[in-house]
């Protein structure tokens, strides 16, 4: 799989049916992507709020991942 941004780390993507994909991170629901009839991808967050329309699946995946960033690890919070 291609390299992901930090927000994409640890995200599990699953295909439910052609064009419909759901993302989870460590057991938590992140959001979903729904391919439209024109070939674009609508991305939604975990509250089913649309976060964007994208030409490519990878960009839609990033948008979903970034809509719910992973928690900052404790050791990084302490150094700030």
């Amino acid at each position: 799989m291609t390299a992901m941004s930090r927000s994409g780390t640890g995200v599990t993507w699953a295909r439910v049916e052609d064009g419909f994909h759901v993302g989870s991170r460590r057991g938590e629901f992140l959001g979903y992507i729904d391919r439209q009839s024109d070939g674009t991808f609508l991305a939604f967050d975990s509250f089913s709020r649309m976060v964007g329309r994208f030409r490519g699946l990878t960009a839609a995946m990033s948008a979903v991942s970034e809509a719910t960033p992973p928690e900052t690890p404790l050791e990084l919070r302490q150094t700030r």
Binding site: M1, W13, R15
Partner: peptide, 11 residues
């Protein structure tokens, strides 16, 4: 119709 995108699981 085909395989899931690369790196994707199948529900």
């Amino acid at each position: 119709a085909g395989d899931a995108p690369e790196g994707f699981r199948d529900t």
